[in-house]
Nucleic acid binder design. Structure first.
Length: 479
RNA sequence: CGGGGUGUGGCGCAGUUGGUAGCGCACCGCGUUUGGGACGCGGGGGUCGUCGGUUCAAGUCCGACCACCCCGACCA
C-alpha cells in the first residue's frame, strides 16, 4: 500500500495542520458550521491541561463554580464597549418550549455580564472580598472564519472572574494569573511565551488593561494563547457591584477576568508537530509511552508477550501513562507510524532479540530516526523511561525557544520591519499611537502582539514615525 | 460579506459525444505474513448535496437553492 503521508509543513502549513488534527483523531468537524467535535484523544490532552491549570488556580485561592449558558440579551447593553465588541458574534435564542420568549437569550460568548449580575447580589461588604471564582465551560461566538481548535464557533475554556476591594489588588490578580498562564505554557506545554500588555486597539471589549501570553507557531505566526484582563470599575459600575468599606462608605469593586481555551491545544500542535505528525509534551500527553511487541510466530509471541506484559505492569506502577499496542492485524511498521502521527513521546519496542538480551528498544518521538533510538536493559526500565520523558519535555522547550528567538528580529528601520514581519516577529520601539499601529497593520498585515512586562532600559524612537517611544512591542502576523 | 473551490459508498477520487455507476483506501471472512506504513483470494456497502426543468433517457445539459472547505475583513 502506497501510504498517504501528511503534507509537509514547508509545502502547506495550514493543510498540514488541518489533516493532522483530523488524522490524529484530536478532533473532527461537527455538522454545525464552525463547530468541532473534540474526540477522546484530543479531550484527554485537554483534560491533562485543565488538571495542570486547575491545580494552579486552586493553589492561589480560587474556587470553581458554574454559571448558566444563557444570558438575558439586555445584559449585554449594560457595558458599552462590551456590547460593541460582542454583539456581532452573539447567537441568540428566541424560542423555548414552542413559545416566543419575552426576552431573547444570548448563548454566552463570555460571562462577565451574568457573573457581574450575580456578584452584585452576593457582594455587600469589604468582608466579602475578594471573590475569586473560575468556571470551566464552553462559550459560543459566531466567528466568520474558523479553524479547528484555533478559532471555532463554540470552544471550551476556563474563565476566571474576580472582584476586589482596590485597584492594586485587582491588578495583582491580573498579573498573578498571567504568571500562571506563562508558567503553564512553558513548563507543561513546553511553549515559550512572551508575557505582556496589549495595545489599546487589541484590548478585550470592556477592559482597561489586557495582558496576554503570545507564542510563536512554526509558520512564525503569533498565537495569543491566553489573556488576563483588568476592568477597573467598568463592569462594577455597569452591574452595580458595590460594597461597604471599613468607613461605611459605598464603593465599587475592581474586577478582572482571564481565560485560556482549547486554542492552546492548537498551539501545542503547531509549535511541536513535525512532518510525521504530532509531537506531544510528555507532561500533557494522553499516552506517554506505547509498547509495541514484535514477533513472527506463536513461540516468539508467548515469550515476547510475557516480557511485554511484565514491562507494562512495571511502567504502569511507576505512574507512566501507557498503551500496549497488541493489535494482530497490523504490522509493527504500521504501528510505529501510527503512534508517531499521534505524537506519543516514547515508543518501547520488544522483540525476540530483546527478550534474548533482556533489553528493549526505546524510540524518542522528538528525535526521528536512528539517533532517537536506543537499546536499554529491561532492568530499571521505569527509571530510564521517566528520565527520558523529562528529557524530552525539556528538549521540546529548548527547541521551541531557540526557534522563537531565532525568528524575533530587531529591525533597524520601518522598511526592515516590513520585511521581517513577513517571516518572523519584530521587536521594536513604538510611540504608542494607534496611527502607527494601524499603518503597520495595513501595510504588512502584522499586528501588535504585546509589550513585554520587563522592558529594556531607556527609551527609543518609534519604528514607524520616529517619535520618542517609551516601550518596545512585538509586531507579528497572528492567528 | 467579498474572492476562489468542492459536493458521487466511511474517506479520497474517476465517470468520454447524456444510455441507468466504477477505482483506491477503509471495512467483513479465510489463509499466509509481522524489527519502519504486508499480501492473496472471497465479500458487504452508493441512485450521485437539494429542488425544479430539458429529454425516450440526466451523475453528466439548464436554473435556483443549500452545505462545506480555502483565501481576505472580525475574533480566545
Amino acid at each position: 500500500m502506497a501510504e498517504d503521508k501528511l503534507p509537509t509543513r514547508a509545502e502547506n502549513f495550514s493543510e498540514w495542520y488541518n489533516q493532522l488534527v483530523l488524522r490524529s483523531e484530536m478532533a473532527d468537524y461537527a455538522p454545525v458550521r464552525g463547530c468541532m467535535v473534540v474526540r477522546p484523544y484530543g479531550w484527554t490532552l485537554w483534560e491533562n491541561m485543565t488538571a495542570a491549570l486547575d491545580r494552579r488556580f486552586k493553589e492561589t485561592g480560587h474556587v470553581n463554580a458554574a454559571f448558566p449558558t444563557l444570558i438575558p440579551l439586555s445584559f449585554f447593553e449594560k457595558e458599552k464597549e462590551h456590547v460593541e465588541g460582542f454583539a456581532p458574534e452573539l447567537a441568540v435564542v428566541t424560542h423555548g418550549g414552542g413559545e416566543k420568549l419575552e426576552e431573547p437569550l444570548a448563548v454566552r460568548p463570555t460571562s462577565e455580564t451574568i457573573i457581574g449580575y450575580m456578584y452584585s447580589k452576593w457582594i455587600k461588604s469589604w468582608r466579602d472580598l475578594p471573590v475569586l471564582i473560575n468556571q470551566w465551560g464552553s462559550v459560543l461566538r459566531w466567528e466568520l472564519r474558523t479553524k479547528l481548535f484555533l478559532r471555532t464557533a463554540e470552544f471550551y475554556w476556563q474563565e476566571g472572574h474576580t472582584a476586589h476591594a482596590g485597584k492594586e489588588e485587582a491588578m495583582e490578580e491580573m498579573y498573578r494569573i498571567l504568571d500562571i498562564y506563562a508558567d503553564f505554557a512553558i513548563n507543561e506545554a513546553a511553549i515559550p511565551v512572551v508575557k505582556g500588555r496589549k495595545s489599546e486597539s487589541e484590548k478585550f471589549a470592556g477592559a482597561q488593561i489586557t495582558t496576554s501570553i503570545e507564542g510563536m507557531m512554526q509558520d512564525k505566526r503569533a498565537l495569543q494563547s491566553a489573556t488576563s484582563h483588568y476592568f477597573g470599575q467598568n463592569f462594577a459600575r455597569a452591574f452595580e457591584i458595590q460594597y461597604l468599606d471599613h468607613n461605611n462608605t459605598l464603593q465599587f469593586c475592581e474586577t478582572t477576568s482571564w481565560g485560556l481555551s482549547t486554542r492552546m491545544v492548537g498551539a501545542i500542535i503547531m509549535v511541536h508537530g513535525d512532518d510525521q505528525g504530532l509531537v506531544l509534551p510528555p507532561r500533557l500527553a494522553p499516552i506517554q509511552a506505547v509498547i509495541v511487541p514484535i514477533y513472527k510466530n506463536d513461540a516468539e509471541k508467548s515469550k515476547v508477550m510475557e516480557a511485554a506484559d511484565r514491562i507494562f505492569a512495571e511502567l504502569k506502577d511507576a505512574g507512566i501513562r501507557l498503551k500496549m499496542d497488541d493489535r494482530e492485524e497490523v504490522t509493527p511498521g504500521f504501528k510505529f507510524n501510527d503512534w508517531e502521527l499521534r505524537g506519543v513521546p516514547l515508543r518501547v519496542e520488544i522483540g525476540p532479540k530483546d527478550v534474548e538480551k533482556s533489553s528493549v528498544a526505546l524510540a524518542r518521538r522528538d528525535v526521528p530516526g536512528r539517533e532517537g533510538k536506543s537499546f536499554v536493559p529491561q532492568a530499571g526500565l521505569a527509571a530510564t523511561v521517566s528520565g527520558l520523558l523529562s528529557e524530552i519535555q525539556s528538549a521540546l522547550l529548548t527547541r521551541a525557544t531557540a526557534f522563537r528567538d531565532a525568528n524575533i528580529h530587531d529591525p533597524k528601520d520601518y522598511d526592515e520591519l516590513k520585511q521581517v514581519v513577513q517571516d518572523g516577529w519584530a521587536f521594536s520601539w513604538w510611540c504608542g499611537s494607534a496611527e502607527c499601529e494601524a499603518k503597520v497593520k495595513e501595510e504588512t498585515k502584522a499586528t501588535t502582539r504585546n509589550m513585554p512586562l520587563d522592558q529594556p532600559k531607556g527609551t527609543g524612537k518609534c519604528i514607524v514615525c520616529g517619535e520618542k517611544a517609551e516601550k518596545k512591542i512585538y509586531f507579528a502576523k497572528a492567528y
